[in-house]
Amino acid sequence: MSRFRKLSQSIWHCQYHIVFVPKYRYRILSGAIGHEVDRCIRAFSEQKKVEIIELNVQIDHVHLLVMVPPKVSLSDYVGLVKGRTAIRVLNRFRQLKKKPYWGNHFWAKGYCIDTVGLDAEMIRKYVKYQERNEKLHEQLQLF
């Protein structure tokens, strides 16, 4: 199978590594909140016909490795994912809105995005195994 995808007028291979964090990089993306974030990202990506290659919701940030069709603007895609996920999470977990510093914002402004070229497999492994490596590093620091 070719690594390229086809549209009616073009063939494409547009792969991106995207990272974004909760406001103030709070460590809240675990348990039910993390599961809801994962579920929402998958649903909204499917709506835009964005293929998720790897998704890793860590306690204080999200890694996405995605193939985005060229007809979808990256900023629109990230805005949709962050905006609609925030609405869903804040409606489902109303206790998050009660904190005076939180307000109606769930994600920090901005995001990091990187194009993926020939090193796609290396980035995929990084996204998939980063959490395990961070936990191991934290445990080693305790000793």
Rank of each mutant, 00 (worst) to 15 (best):
M1E: 05
S2K: 03
S2Q: 07
R3Q: 02
R5W: 07
S8R: 10
S10K: 09
W12F: 12
H13T: 03
C14R: 11
C14W: 05
C14M: 12
C14K: 04
C14I: 01
C14Q: 10
C14T: 02
Q15L: 08
Q15D: 04
Y16F: 15
H17S: 04
I18C: 11
V19E: 03
F20I: 07
V21H: 12
K23R: 12
K23I: 12
Y24S: 12
Y24A: 11
Y24N: 13
R25C: 14
R25G: 14
R25F: 03
R25W: 06
R27D: 07
I28K: 09
I28P: 00
I28H: 05
L29F: 06
S30W: 08
S30C: 08
A32Q: 14
G34S: 07
H35V: 11
H35I: 03
H35L: 04
R39Y: 13
I41F: 15
A43T: 02
F44Q: 06
F44H: 03
E46G: 04
Q47C: 10
Q47F: 09
K48G: 07
E51K: 15
E51C: 10
E54M: 11
E54K: 15
N56Y: 01
V57K: 03
V57D: 11
I59R: 15
D60Y: 08
D60A: 06
H61I: 00
V62G: 07
V62C: 06
L64E: 10
L65F: 04
V68A: 08
P70N: 10
P70M: 05
P70Q: 01
P70A: 10
L74N: 13
L74K: 11
S75A: 15
D76I: 09
Y77K: 09
G79K: 14
G79I: 13
L80G: 11
V81M: 14
V81C: 03
K82W: 01
K82H: 07
G83V: 01
G83L: 07
G83S: 11
T85K: 12
A86D: 02
I87F: 12
I87W: 09
R88K: 14
R88Q: 12
V89Y: 07
V89N: 13
L90T: 05
L90M: 14
L90Q: 09
N91D: 14
R92C: 03
F93C: 12
R94N: 09
Q95W: 04
L96N: 11
K97G: 02
K98Y: 08
K99W: 04
P100I: 03
W102Y: 05
W102Q: 13
G103I: 00
G103F: 02
G103K: 10
H105Y: 05
W107D: 13
A108N: 08
A108L: 09
K109I: 01
C112H: 10
D114Q: 12
D114K: 13
T115N: 03
V116M: 02
L118Y: 00
D119C: 00
D119M: 01
D119Q: 00
E121N: 09
E121V: 01
E121L: 10
E121G: 05
M122I: 08
Y126H: 04
Y126V: 09
V127F: 08
V127L: 02
V127G: 00
Y129C: 02
Q130R: 00
R132M: 05
R132I: 03
R132N: 05
E134I: 04
K135L: 02
E138I: 12
L140F: 06
L140M: 11
Q141V: 04
L142C: 06
F143C: 01
